Amino acid sequence: MTPKDPGPAYCLNPDCGKPIDRGAGSGRPRRYCNDTCGRAYRRAREESPTPDALAHNDFADRVADDLTQVIAHIVQLTRTQQPLAALCLLRLAEGDLEDLKAVLVQQARDQRQKNADIAQCLGLAPEQLSRKLSADTVRRRMDSRPLRTRTRVRLPRQAAPPPAPASRAVSAGRIPGQRRPATGGGGMTPSRARDPDRHPGSPAAVLTRALSHLQRLSGKTLRELADDTHVSASYVSRVLSGDRCPSWKIARLFTLACGGDPAEIQPLWAAARGQAPTQRQSLPAALRGLHLAAARPRADQLGEHTHLSARAITGMFDGTALPAWEDVEELAHALNAEAQPLRPLWNAACAALAGPSAFTAGPVTEVTG
């Protein structure tokens, strides 16, 4: 009986990707196009961190920074005798510590530390470490952190903190996620999105998530997408893993091949490339792109994580309402994305509504209709 053709194979070196000639001979199938290419890849992998290792390093830095800010808030709340608020933030700190412990374990593995040595530091047996903090567990914590940390803070409605001493700022007792009161004296109200429980992804990460979600929705394989975009399957894989930022031509072909809207992807691509968005890119389309990158949660779910109503969020996606800039910031951060790349689009929307002579750079109130 003739064995089934396994299909084309490609070199595992991501900088090569050449087809591999897998004949009918015996022995293990080849993984690289030749021995020289394999040795070069293994040597480069040992000398430089992998994309996964870089992601672990970045995640550890962000969690450590967030934990520092949360602890500072807890100290302030403790000194102003606000125990309920401090206890709510303490839950955040506990989760941050668990996230930090998980990613530090993975960092040690990336550095090829022995499993027994890592377990000893935590007071665990090696088999307990492998079971409780496997690589999959760390990856799940990294993926679930943005929404998990946002939903953990819930203050009792009847809890009213005592007046803060005059020597302390009133904002010291504010819990992340609460709406800030307007400041007097003509000063600008601080952004709601600058809270320690916000974890916006970088523009490149948002683009990667959007393209990956499109690929999952389409059900297409890497080989099929490679044929549609006229690149190699290994290159498509690197784009979906965030290792490569494609050109707009490839990103557009990829989006069309997956049945997506290029207008939603183009603002994300421009932000990932560090480019200013063009006037053809509308604010609603950019928000829909962020929505896609977050796997399109329902408006009522987003409303639970923001101070916006489901109707207002839907209006922002549909373009039937022009929100205030702080609402754009809050929605973007609820979608785990940075808001600043949207600022030129919001300014353009304000200018189009008010007209060239009436436009000012300040925030505007929400317009419905």
Rank of each mutant, 00 (worst) to 15 (best):
F359Y: 15
P190H: 10
L322W: 02
L67E: 08
R273A: 09
P246G: 00
D300Q: 14
R112Q: 13
L214M: 14
G173R: 15
R112C: 09
Q275K: 14
R131G: 06
A40Q: 11
R45M: 06
E330N: 02
D300N: 10
Q106I: 05
P356F: 06
R296D: 03
R288Q: 06
R288H: 02
A226P: 01
R31Q: 13
V206S: 13
D52Q: 11
R209K: 11
D61T: 13
D21K: 11
S282N: 03
H73Y: 09
S202A: 15
L92E: 10
L124Y: 12
S237K: 09
R238S: 14
S247L: 06
T229R: 01
E127T: 12
P3F: 03
L147P: 02
V231F: 02
H333K: 05
S144C: 08
A324T: 09
R141V: 05
T255E: 00
M142F: 04
G27D: 04
P284Y: 05
P49L: 05
T255P: 01
I74P: 04
K114C: 07
P363K: 08
C16K: 07
P262K: 00
V367H: 13
F359D: 08
G7V: 08
S26Q: 11
P3G: 02
R157N: 09
E224T: 06
A53D: 12
G38L: 07
A159W: 13
G38Y: 07
L147D: 14
A276T: 14
G315W: 04
I71P: 00
S167H: 10
P323G: 01
Q81T: 10
P190W: 14
G260D: 01
A339R: 03
E224V: 02
S48F: 13
V103S: 01
W269L: 14
R30W: 09
G186K: 04
I71W: 10
A226D: 08
A44W: 06
N34S: 15
R343Q: 14
H333V: 15
P190V: 11
C11Q: 00
G319C: 01
A40F: 04
